[in-house]
Design a protein around this nucleic acid. Structure first.
Lengths: 209, 209, 209, 209
DNA sequence: GATGAATGAGGATTCATTCAT
DNA sequence: GATGAATGAATCCTCATTCAT
């Protein structure tokens, strides 16, 4: 049954994601996934050509889900400033989600395995594309007046997001409010807009500190 | 022999760093380190409580070295703008250095071990402190007129550096010029200075794109 | 359906033979046979008590075919000398046939399973019987004048054949012409006949070398 | 300690040979060898690069021993006829020795592994060389008057030996006396000598059967 | 009849750690 | 101090067999 098999594959992918999120890439093993999915170890490899492929697919699906989630967030929102604020706030989450954890688990861990690196590049490029769209539309509507190249702004926003999210791997020292403020301030001066109510207007910059 | 023993420890730490830099965290094993240091496997663990501790110490020493290197770079430079440019250019290296590689190899790989996370946080905080000093001095000397909180600028610069360096794990897609430009442009509009000769003057901002 | 079932059994036996001939006994697995026969793995074992039994039967059928082929070769030939030459030449083939390969693949591989050994003995005895008939008829017709016991000659010819065929497992060092000459010369001096045109007459033996 | 290590290597090679002789190549596994040698599985692979290499070396050493034994048998014997008789009798042993069993276990089993095939070729060529020497010396001394090419006689004798030994894999149907007689008669008519007291003289051949 | 998912034991190999020397 | 042999659990993977569908 293709139906049953695909269902099981999904279960295994989910189990693999969960294991990675919980115990890290290093803690992901055939047995760990098998136990999480409550199947035999043989079953895990029955559905995938190799354990590596299972992990790769799991990461890929998490990334897709992660990206889709971000995209849906701004789907119904018209105001460019509001969209940007939503993007940034979603980029610096309250707590680390399983998805994000998986993404960063894989990020640095397996330099030698090209497929992981490509995934990482993929998620970054998609984020940049998403930010670029939001900014370009905002510029077109007159909501933003960029002070630097638009693609540089998008790349920087994603980079900031990546870095601050990476810090999440040490949750005890994670300071969401500060990271959020840092990104918001950057977006404001780079795009000449007001994202936060009480913040200074970037169009009339005043000396800071 | 305390002297001889400490010497041997240093050799082992150096060997461990080299192995990690070359073959990644996954390729680091007792035997690999032993072969690199040209000692027996038993000898490797004779000087350390466990292999994990050896790795931890090795990473720690690499981080110290990494940080010290950055600090020495700007030691004899007086001009704040020049110092900032040096900092940024050193932050986005031509090629990934062994030190940087070790740092990121370890970043996410061994998340479950608190000491690694602390190391990571440590290197970030030191970087932020370094940038903060450069900026503060520049502000005091009138070289910079910050458009946002100084600590936010420093944190953002380090975050950008961290993120763009992280991308180095996929060297094929690494675009130093672009990342460098992104950071320079950000520094210019955030600090109201000119870092790159031909770039637009951030004091007289013009519309981009 | 007995008809359909037996057809399927034959298909599976053929598939098993093909797999063994191509990938050796070590490469013969349920899945390999299933894929070759284009059926499911479950189906393979549905028709046989075990995979071992399937292999056993496959080998048996290959041996039967192998033997029948040899028998048919001399069917229409009347001249005893010609019959003997045909036998010997067929015994030292140009290339290893799938049949022969299967026979020798199995020969020593599964020694612990008595049925394989019996198969091996079977094929040998049949060969000896075949040679014996050819020789006896030749003696009766006056074409051969044996210098040693006829059954010893037949056994030796089969043994030579077996050994030289065994060497075929290392095809790179296989020297058909030499092995053929060796057997022909032996047959000539043992039976006092001339098998090869240019060879010395065994009836008037001259000193060799 | 090199001494201790080499001792252990020898033990493991012996254990491997014993396992192969007893359970065949197919029954040779790391665990089987480990249990036979009364060490851990890890220990088996500590001394060899791979299990395959252990098996290869074991077979190689058995072959060397096998060949050396044959060579020593005729060392002190001067009479060519006696030497030939000793060779043939040793070639058709009473019972299958562990050495011989290992040699033939490997013979057909692992077609895909070139190192085994080379071993097989090696043992054959050495046997041929040994027979050749015995025959050539006998010819030089006037003890033999060959009826066919000397190299063909040597090759045939080894081939007969190989084949009859191969039949040993089915010990129940093994008939030493007959195989011995077959080889002796062949040697007599091929070399024009008398090997067995009561046998007919090959110099004055009479009709057989 | 036929399927193919699931099993679990067994395959070789790697590894940090221990310990007698 | 230093060695390296030995360990045994863990790694991924293969496989014949079973069984619900």
């Amino acid at each position: 049954m293709t139906r049953k098999s695909q269902l099981r594959k999904q279960e295994l992918l989910a189990a693999a994601s969960a294991v990675i999120a919980e115990h890290g890439i290093a803690g992901a093993s055939v047995r760990a996934v098998a136990e999480r999915a409550e199947v035999s170890t043989g079953s895990v490899l029955y559905h995938f050509e190799s354990f590596d492929q299972l992990v790769t697919e799991a990461v890929k699906s998490v990334i897709d889900e992660f990206n889709g989630h971000r995209r849906r967030l701004i789907d119904g929102v018209a105001d460019p400033v509001e969209r940007l604020r939503i993007m940034i706030e979603a980029g610096i989450p309250e707590r680390i989600s399983n998805e994000l954890r998986v993404v960063y688990e894989v990020a640095a861990a397996l330099r030698d395995q090209p497929q992981y690196r490509r995934n990482q590049t993929l998620v970054t490029e998609r984020q940049v594309a998403l930010y670029s769209i939001v900014i370009e539309v905002g510029v077109a509507l007159g909501a933003f007046t960029p002070r630097m190249d638009v693609d540089a702004i998008a790349a920087n926003l994603v980079a900031l997001e990546d870095a601050y999210d990476l810090y999440l791997l040490d949750p005890d020292n994670w300071q969401r409010d500060i990271y959020l403020r840092n990104m918001m301030q950057y977006a404001e001066i780079a795009l000449g807009c007001v994202l936060v109510a009480d913040a200074s207007n970037a169009d009339e910059p005043e000396e800071h500190q």
